[in-house]
């Protein structure tokens, strides 16, 4: 139920933000690996939990084409199910923006 609410909130917040995906990708990939990879790479707990909830095709965030930057920001700061919230000290806004740009890029996906 909570997940559905967050999706709804995210949908309201989506405002067609364009992302400088190509330019941000090198930093974004490295930052994603450093900040998120421990849970969201193939063998991570986050991937496992997403697979249970949404199916295998939605489990790896790096492979998804449906993520939107406002939703990513929202989940990072509010958490979701087992995922805890991340403070702005641990994950500064500037890093979060780069990660969001990386996950919403238009380029090739692993």
């Amino acid at each position: 139920m909570r997940a559905m609410n967050l999706v709804a909130v995210a949908a309201v917040l989506m405002s067609g933000l364009s992302t400088a995906a190509a330019a941000a990708e090198p930093d974004g990939k490295a930052l994603y690996a450093r900040r998120c990879g421990i849970c969201h790479f193939a063998d991570g707990g986050g991937t496992w939990m997403l697979e249970r909830r949404l199916g295998k095709s939605q489990a790896l965030l790096e492979s998804r084409a449906d993520l939107q930057a406002p939703y990513i920001r929202l989940i990072a700061r509010r958490g979701l199910n087992g995922m805890p919230r991340f403070t702005r000290v641990e994950l500064p806004d500037s890093d979060l923006e780069i990660i969001a740009a990386y996950l919403t890029r238009s380029g090739p996906r692993p």
């Binding site: 421990i38 063998d43 707990g45 939990m49 087992g82």
Partner: peptide, 9 residues
């Protein structure tokens, strides 16, 4: 690792 967080599911 932090895989133990999976228990929350």
């Amino acid at each position: 690792v932090v895989t133990r967080l999976k228990v929350l599911n």
